[in-house]
Amino acid sequence: MTVASALEMALAAVVLGVATWTIAARETFAAVVGFVTYGLLLALIWVRLDAVDVALVEAAIGGGLGGVLLLGAAARLRVTETPTATERPSATVRVGAALLSAAVAAALATGVILLPDPAPTLAPAAAANATATGLGNPVTNVLMAFRAMDTMLEKVVLLLALVGVWSLAPDRLWGGHPGPRHRADPLGTLAFLARLLPPVGIVVGIYVFWTGKDHPGGAFQGGTILAAMWLLVMMAGIADAPQVSSRRLRIVLIAGPGIFLAVGLAGFAIGSAFLAYPVAYAKPLILGIEVAMTLTIAATLGLLLAGAPERSAGQ
């Protein structure tokens, strides 16, 4: 056994251990901390699997925004947690849940075992056409050219999720500011960090987006970092979340999918089909779409975490 394979087994064991602990933890807060840790460790595994693009997403979402979202949820659940902990579901419910879980696990396992070997893949086709767009990162090629439809619809899904969160607001607060108005000592430690870090984060976020054309990175990873910086400023109480009825905000929210769709429709006229880029302009078109998507993703993720409107204007 080589050192490297021993290492891989150790890594897998640690991750499995943390995952088991997360499931077994009885307290929501403890489970959330376990899950954040699990996400950070998963970034290591993705790097080991040579999927650095995915590792970047895992580091940004798992280590950053996901933790914020889940800790917020755990804090809200804490009030109801004590009464639910004392409740004991009936034997029928418990047996039913166990059977259901076992069935899902068995179905997944069967699916994995029944996969043809070698698995059907489009990777050689994607690699053979890698130079067609003028971009060096194969993942960006797949996302923005070969499977552009999926990527565009993903952004629409994000937008729908945001509309879903907003729709939880009571009618009289519709259009107001999302979430509570965060207050913190404007001269305290958190405010100090929120004044120092965002400029650095903006440079890093734009770099991660920009490097995505040739190296691991891209609009989603860069947009997540920018969203995190915005959220930090909001959590430190330095800036308030904008009203969801703000026109400028809504333009930013639809910019990414909107421009994507416009370029896609233009494909009928200047290209050969919907979402087909003319080869000569593929690179600038893709970069233009990605700039808009980075802004949209940053705004959408920031607002998703800020929550449903809870205050009317001026409150």
Binding site: A194, L196, P199, I202, V203, I206
Partner: peptide, 15 residues
Amino acid sequence: IVAVLAATVTSLRLL
């Protein structure tokens, strides 16, 4: 240049 401009403006507003 875009990144540095955006970051500098943000920095002057925050601090």
